[in-house]
């Protein structure tokens, strides 16, 4: 049976403006998790009933821990940011499908992330071998660049132009003439849209990780749907569940 686990926090640190990195002890989730999957975190304050979905940023080498990197966006993530090593947190997962790593085998892979879409790219990069490029878009301050540059050629775009290409990830890809056979992307909708257009133009197979408000996180409540191009096999309408059928979708399958 799957369960929601009460996990011990190993460490927590601020790694950027309002960006926190938390290592959590859990053999079961670490053992089963794949890059691009997510977990849900639960608030201790019972007035906040819904889970907070957070992507897996890294899986511990010993397969006994996971790393979550998140931005304080509201009260729930604010509460998590106050937890310290030794504290407990309720975690459920791993959830969702993750990136199709087999599609990247032996190919030139381009990982693209923007903002809080960057964290899942770390474990993805770690598990890919060969020719991996990573184009990451930041507002201003950088985070996770060390981890990413260890397993990929890293290209950075910043909105304020303080580091790398001034502009967004697509500007970085063009400026650096990055060539690739497959794209994995995660980030805000406008960024995903630009990437999907680029991939379509160059006929590059592309997978994107989507975000939506969630209640159950496991596919039962139909809160987190996105629109699909074709009638979906589960819902029998043009809707897919981000939490269960995604969060990663082939770009050709969903409407942005």
């Amino acid at each position: 049976m799957k369960t929601k686990e009460l996990c011990r926090i190993i460490s927590q640190e601020m790694i950027g403006p309002e960006i926190y990195s938390m290592w959590v002890q859990t053999d079961r989730i670490a053992d089963q998790a794949r890059p691009g999957q997510f977990v849900t975190l639960y608030s201790k304050d019972r007035s906040r009933m819904l889970p907070r979905p957070i992507s897996l940023c890294e899986i511990g080498d010993d397969k006994k821990s996971i790393r979550l990197v998140y931005r304080v966006a509201g009260e729930g993530t604010r509460e998590f940011s106050r937890l310290r090593s030794g504290d407990d947190i309720e975690v459920m997962g791993p959830l969702g499908n993750g990136f199709p790593m087999e599609e990247a085998q032996g190919k030139r892979v381009l990982l693209m992330g923007g903002g809080i879409g960057i964290p899942p790219m770390v474990e993805t990069a770690k598990q890919l071998s060969g020719d991996v490029a990573a184009a990451m878009g930041y507002r201003d301050a950088l985070f996770l660049t060390e981890e990413l540059s260890r397993c990929a050629s890293l290209y950075i775009a910043t909105e304020d132009g303080s580091v790398g290409t001034a502009g967004n990830v697509m500007d970085a890809v063009r400026e650096n003439h990055i060539r690739c056979d497959v794209i994995f992307a995660c980030g805000p909708k406008p960024m995903l849209k630009a990437i999907v257009d680029y991939a379509g133009e160059h006929k590059i197979p592309c997978w994107i990780s989507m975000e939506e408000r969630m209640a159950c996180g496991i596919g039962a409540c139909l809160a987190c749907t996105c629109q699909s191009k074709e009638v979906d096999g589960h819902s029998h309408v043009k809707n897919k569940r981000v939490c269960k059928d995604g969060p990663v979708f082939p770009a050709s399958e969903v409407e942005l």
Binding site: E212, M214, A215, A223, T225, H236
Partner: peptide, 10 residues
């Protein structure tokens, strides 16, 4: 089949 409402739904 019913397609339901647009998101955000919750």
């Amino acid at each position: 089949p019913w397609p339901g409402n647009p998101t955000p739904r919750i």
